[in-house]
Design a protein around this nucleic acid. Structure first.
Length: 447
RNA sequence: GUCCGGAUAGUGUAGUGGCCAAUCAUGGGGCCCUGUCGAGGCCUCGACCCGGGUUCAAAUCCCGGCCCGGACGCCA
């Protein structure tokens, strides 16, 4: 029998969600998937078959089934791989109004037991246990649903940006020098030299503005070697980055808020099933988002008991106070913080013409969570060089970057948006690790 | 990195010095059961993170280690 295993034994005709009671009793279907649960009542046995799209009940009545078929069913274990071929029988007593009456059940690969975790939702597992057994954790419909939504999110972002004349690019993740300062990088061995994993596509995006690409976007990994250990940080994340020429910070803020609104809207339609699996309905996004000045943010923080020196970055406590205050007064979670002190933002942020201590940088916040940050960039090489030196960085590392500014660099602006944080806030997930298949954090390198 | 908390069967838990040769659920094995959908009933299997110490007695108290969670810092 084993030797007869050929593709017809595991070629499905339908996913479980493609079946309905009305499909017709004469219709013979083949389903493939995992044994989700087994319920043996003696004279009748239920095998729940799970595939990517759902769960269907396979019913065996002892009286009407061959001894061989009953025997196969009784020897199944949970999470084993099976192919079931049979008829779809409308049945009021069955979970979705129909059940499969099998002609054959083939066990393609038996699962060992006990399982490393429960897939049916009867017993919870800690996040750490779930991540250790991620292949199994991801079989749970609610966990899978997050990644179906993530897929639709990426699709929505790509289509929105493509439709707005952005060209998708891919830039190196292995780089020779630290790009922006600020964050710690992972050093790697690159033949006889030291190299780093890139923290952001920032400098490459800018070089492509000089190259005349006009509008670019990249969705790709970024690496941060910070030893932070929180619910909202990862050491490897996915950044949605754009850069646009002949655009100022207000132009790209507009694009950003429209993108956010678009993705919420698209997911409501395209990820309806996955959202209902999670029992979530997405917020309705109303534009424009509030533009809160840095100075106003400090006042709110101060009124809430958290004093911040002008020129310092916001503390976590301040962000919580500000997020709560804005949510109360506007009824919305999203807002921009604008008009930042030049000295807390990266060297490439454009200072305001009339007040050099402020710059044209912005953060997009969701409550106390920073989703995105961006700015109009400096396009003058003299100014840029001065700013690099002021921030205590070495010019030597930036030569190939600075060259792009010498021979025709247009004014430009852009931002980077954290995919995981966006998804996390959309779905109101508690831990950013729930938005990544195989998260990388301070402690976890496998699987 | 700092502070706080935690580690008990495959999974999730109860247990704050002797009543623990350790609770309950889920799960595994076995038996019964023709409508389950968190099926049910009966039987059974399976655990105190590692190393020291205190004590007549340690899952429980102390010290060190390792691992985990949360907050903060840093950072996006």
């Amino acid at each position: 029998m084993k030797n007869d295993l050929n593709q017809s034994l595991f070629r499905r005709t339908h996913y479980t969600n493609q079946l309905t009671p009305k499909i017709g009793e004469d219709c013979v279907v083949t389903l493939t998937g995992w044994v989700h649960e087994l319920r043996d009542l003696g004279g009748i046995m239920f095998v729940l078959l799970r595939d990517r799209e759902g769960i269907t009940q396979v019913t065996l009545v002892k009286r009407n089934s061959s001894a061989e078929l009953m025997n196969t069913a009784k020897n199944l274990s949970r999470e084993s791989i099976i192919t079931v071929a049979g008829k779809v029988k409308p049945e009021k007593k069955a979970p979705r109004g129909y059940e499969i009456i099998p002609d054959t059940i083939h066990l393609l690969n038996k699962a060992s037991s006990p399982l490393p975790m429960d897939t049916t939702g009867k017993v919870d597992a800690d996040l750490d246990t779930r991540l250790d057994a991620r292949f199994m954790d991801l079989r749970r419909p609610q966990v899978l649903a997050v990644f179906k939504i993530r897929h639709h999110l990426m699709q929505a972002v790509r289509s929105f940006l493509s439709n707005n004349d952005f060209i998708e690019i891919t830039t190196p993740k292995i780089v020779g020098v630290a790009t922006e300062g600020g964050t710690a990088l992972f050093p790697i061995s690159y033949f006889e030299r030291e190299a780093f994993l890139n923290q952001s596509p920032q400098l490459f995006k800018q070089i492509l503005m000089s190259a005349g690409f006009d509008r670019v976007f990249e969705i790709g990994p970024i690496f941060r070697a910070e030893e932070h250990d929180t619910r909202k940080h990862l050491n490897e994340a996915t950044s949605i980055d754009i850069e646009a020429s002949f655009a100022d910070h207000n132009d790209v803020m507009n694009i950003l808020e429209q993108l956010i609104a678009h993705t919420y809207q698209e997911l409501t339609i395209r990820a309806e099933d996955a959202l209902s699996t999670l029992n979530i309905s997405l917020d309705v996004i109303e534009l424009p988002f509030k533009r809160l000045k840095y100075d106003e943010a400090l006042e709110i923080a101060s009124a809430g008991g958290e004093k911040i020196e002008w020129g310092d970055d916001l503390t976590t406590a301040a962000e919580i106070i500000i997020g709560d205050t804005i949510a109360e007064s506007t009824g919305r979670s999203h807002y921009f913080i604008v008009d930042w002190p030049t000295k807390v933002k990266p060297f490439y942020a454009m200072p305001c013409e009339n007040q050099q201590s402020l710059c044209k940088a912005f953060d997009l916040m969701h409550r106390d969570m920073e989703l995105a940050s961006g700015a109009q960039r400096i396009h003058s090489i003299e100014l840029l060089t001065g700013r690099i030196l002021e921030q205590g960085l070495e010019i030597a590392g930036f030569e190939s970057y600075l060259n792009a500014f010498k021979y025709g660099m247009p004014p430009h602006s852009g931002w980077g948006l954290g995919t995981e944080r966006l998804l996390m806030t959309m779905l109101k997930l508690n831990n950013i690790r729930d938005t990544v298949l195989f998260p990388r954090d301070r402690k976890r390198l496998t699987p």
